[in-house]
Amino acid sequence: MTTPVKIVMVEDDHGHARLIEKNIRRANISNEIAHFADGGSALDYLFSDEVKANGPLLILLDLNLPDMSGTDILQKVKGDERLRRAPVVILTTTDDKVEIQRCYDLGCNVYITKPVDYESFADAIRQLGLFLSVMQAPDIE
C-alpha cells in the first residue's frame, strides 16, 4: 500500500491558508496538510530528515512571502535531487505573465491565480482537491 500524499502549504496569510484548507476538506480530501507561514521554516522542513524518511509530497506555494519570494523556494526544490519530483502548485495573487512564465520555467507543475471572487476561489480549490484525489505523486527517497 502506498503512503498517502502529504500536502505542504507555504502561505503567509493565515486567512488564505484557512480558506484553502477548508475548501480542500470540503472537496473530501483528507490528506495531512503541513502549513508554514514563511519561506525559511518551510525550507527547513522540506530539507529535514523527517521529510526524507517519509513518503510522497505535494507543495502548495504562495509567491509573496515575507522573508523570500516563493520562486526562491521553487528554485531550491526543483534544484534538489530528491525533491524535484514533488509536484508544485503555485497558488498566488500575482497574475503577471512574466511571473507565470518564470514559474513554469523553473519547473512548477500548476499555476493558479487566487481569484478575489470567492466562488471562483472556492471552486478552484475544490477542483484542485479533485485533481489531488486522482494524482499520483512519486515517492521521495
Partner: peptide, 21 residues
Amino acid sequence: AYIVSHDLRAPLVNVMGYTSE
C-alpha cells in the same frame, strides 16, 4: 503601483472569502 495592487488584493481575498463563509 504593481506591488500595492498585489498586496491590496491579498487581504481582499480574505474579506471576500470570509464574507461568503
